[in-house]
């Protein structure tokens, strides 16, 4: 298995969770569960922002936990704070992308998700849905092979949601990326996921 998480234990003062999961290369794993069950905590731990007290997380046989966040092969879309508020949308989009991606894939993605008119604006001038699409494009076009999305479609209306779903699916398939995503919507799971993990309280 490409991603293997075994008995990963996260501990807070009055709260503890153990996680185990596996995902093959190119698989898209949807994570479901009630609010507060620890979905985001799992993703933050995999990305290196929360330190587990026990267990292991391996990617292509490499120990993820031994790597600092910036060295992990992960591109993550956070729930909030995905954009630098003092940089324009265009500047935000280019961060972390390869030069050829900026030239070849970025304009098409921007067009597809209806952001062409927004490139020179600051994030503060965008709606919640537009901000989320900007973050989504950058997360998916980055070269990292493992994509982590924390509620990526939460603020989108029906039309843009469908476009974002299509874009996400195509981008993931095109480069055979492995994806973990948190969502509360069954239609997102139906459209994207190849397997589902249900976290119990």
């Amino acid at each position: 298995m490409t991603l293997k998480v075994e008995n990963l234990s996260i501990y807070y003062a009055d709260w503890q969770r153990d996680y185990s999961l596996v995902a093959a290369e190119g698989e898209r794993l949807a994570i479901k569960g009630l609010s507060g069950v620890g979905k985001t905590t799992l993703l933050m731990a995999l990305a290196g922002f929360i330190k587990p007290i026990a267990g292991s997380a391996r990617w292509r046989d490499q120990d993820l936990l031994a790597l600092p966040p910036e060295r992990r092969p992960i591109s993550m879309l956070f729930q909030d704070d995905n954009l630098f508020e003092h940089l324009s949308v265009a500047q935000n989009l280019r961060l972390g992308l390869r030069a050829e991606t900026i030239v070849n894939s970025l304009p098409e993605a921007v067009e597809q998700l209806g952001l062409s008119e927004q490139l020179n604006k600051l994030p503060g001038q965008l709606s919640g849905g537009q901000r989320q699409r900007v973050g989504l494009i950058r997360t998916l076009l980055r070269p990292e092979p493992l994509i982590i999305l924390d509620e990526p479609f939460a603020e989108l209306d029906a039309d843009t949601r469908q476009r974002a779903l299509d874009f996400t699916l195509n981008a993931a398939r095109a480069s055979n990326k492995t994806m973990l995503l948190i969502t509360h919507q069954d239609e997102d799971i139906a459209a994207l996921a190849t397997q589902t993990l249900h976290l119990e309280p």
């Binding site: 600092p68 966040p69 910036e70 060295r71 992960i74 591109s75 993550m76 995905n82 630098f84 980055r142």
Partner: peptide
């Protein structure tokens, strides 16, 4: 932005 910066590498 700490987490985002780290993640963007």
């Amino acid at each position: 932005y700490g987490a985002l910066i780290a993640n963007l590498n």
